[in-house]
């Protein structure tokens, strides 16, 4: 595919991520920092760090919530970490779910936490798929330049 068509596909993908509320203005700021600062690969670096962090944290949360006695302080600390990571990359939906998740932790609501984890996991997987497509398109565009 020609670079112009790939670029159009990339722009459409990113626009849809903004339109659906998956990402917010913080993600736009990352793109601006990359473009204005002349640091190619900056967005990919932050996105990769976020995906690695989120994957690890979601696994930790699943393990904690399977324990016979749940340590809600530990759960809360991990959700806090995920909220911070998602805010940094502009993962708006994940961040909002983390806010609700933390409230459930403070209420020591195990079933609520398990449901919140399922929601956060789905939102993260949706976003990760989009990010992966975005990074693949960027690589294809760069390969043609």
């Amino acid at each position: 595919m020609a670079a112009a068509a790939l670029r159009e596909q990339l722009n459409t993908l990113i626009s849809s991520m903004f339109a659906s509320g998956m990402v917010d203005e913080q993600f736009q700021q990352l793109q601006m920092l990359q473009d204005d600062g002349g640091t190619p690969g900056f967005v990919a670096e932050v996105v990769t760090l976020f995906c690695d962090d989120a994957d690890r944290i979601i696994s930790e949360l699943a393990a904690l919530l399977e324990q016979p006695v749940v340590d809600f302080d530990k759960v809360d600390a991990y959700v806090h970490q995920l909220k911070g990571s998602s805010a940094s990359v502009g993962a708006q939906k994940v961040k909002f779910t983390c806010l609700q998740f933390r409230q459930l932790c403070q209420d020591k609501n195990r079933d609520g936490c398990i449901m919140a984890l399922a929601v956060v996991r789905n939102e993260f997987y949706d976003l990760r798929n989009k990010f992966q497509t975005m990074l693949q398109l960027e690589q294809q565009i760069q390969a043609q330049q």
Partner: peptide, 15 residues
């Protein structure tokens, strides 16, 4: 302590 926040802060301070 978290790399993602350090990477962001580095880029912002640079610019």
């Amino acid at each position: 302590d978290e790399e993602i926040h350090r990477v962001l802060a580095r880029a912002l301070l640079k610019s």
